[in-house]
């Protein structure tokens, strides 16, 4: 059959196949660094499509009977901060006409909404949760948004930080939740105030929120996890 001159005899081909397999696996490890470049190239387009997909209207919700408290896992990059509810203030600053320092009474005086939605973690798990509290849009409206505002920078008591596009922040199901599953928010879940929405991955939903700052552009600090490589838009 194949002569020795044949550069791809059956024997050689099999040898190449066997020899090539480990090289492929080693190559896989070397490719890990390339992933970041792949993300840099493709993420802007993905994020643009995600923003286009995201409507301004309400999304369907779950039935309260579908809530599964045990499914909701606790994630925090830096433990649980201690916050005195009496001394708590939510600062709204930046590109606003009336900067605010809201206490919990002021937040409770705003119209209260409940969302029964799926909380999806970037790790892959999810949990149906009933969140309630005022809409983030109502809180921002108190402060009077400047037309220049395009992004919201969110500060937390545990030094976690996030930034959102304004359209997602103004979504009717984006809440500053003070209650979870009908009871006051537990400390580990972000008491007294955390973000909740059906349209973002869990790492966008800051716990222990203490400050909202309206900005015209995204700064260098885009989010604790985003600055380490996670996608910024993170829409669902």
């Amino acid at each position: 059959m194949a002569t020795p001159a044949d550069p791809l005899s059956r024997r050689r081909s099999l040898g190449l196949l066997l020899g090539g397999a480990p090289a492929l696996l080693l190559g896989g490890c070397a490719l890990n660094g390339v992933g970041e470049a792949v993300g840099t190239v493709t993420q802007p387009l993905n994020e643009r499509i995600e923003a286009l997909l995201q409507g301004k209207g309400k999304l369907p919700e779950f039935r309260p009977s579908q809530v599964d408290p045990a499914a909701l896992l606790i994630n925090s990059f830096n433990g649980t901060p201690e916050i005195d509810p009496g001394g708590y203030r939510l600062a709204v600053a930046g590109l606003v006409s009336r900067p605010q320092r809201l206490d919990l009474t002021a937040l409770a005086a705003l119209p209260q909404h409940q969302c029964v939605i799926r909380h999806v973690c970037v790790e892959g798990w999810s949990a149906v949760v009933a969140w309630s509290g005022p809409r983030l849009a109502d809180v921002l409206a108190l402060a009077g948004l400047s037309p220049l505002a395009g992004y919201v920078f969110i500060e937390s008591a545990d030094q976690y930080y996030e930034s959102w596009d304004l359209a997602s922040a103004l979504h009717p199901q984006t809440l500053l939740a003070t209650h979870m599953n009908g009871a006051p928010l537990p400390a580990a879940n972000g008491a007294p105030v955390r973000l909740a929405t059906p349209i973002k991955l869990g790492y966008k939903l800051s716990k222990w929120v203490t400050g909202l700052k309206l900005m015209a552009t995204l700064g260098d600090r885009r989010g604790y996890w985003e600055d380490q490589g996670y996608e910024w838009f993170a829409g669902l």
């Binding site: 896989g28 490890c29 992933g35 993300g39 993420q43 790790e123 996670y230 996608e231």
Partner: peptide, 22 residues
């Protein structure tokens, strides 16, 4: 096993997965 994975960590895996999905 790490041998069968690509990306090194979660964000790297997502970079590849959502980068190549198109």
């Amino acid at each position: 096993p790490e041998l069968f994975t690509l990306g090194g960590w979660l964000a790297g895996g997502r970079d590849w997965h959502f980068g190549v999905m198109g």
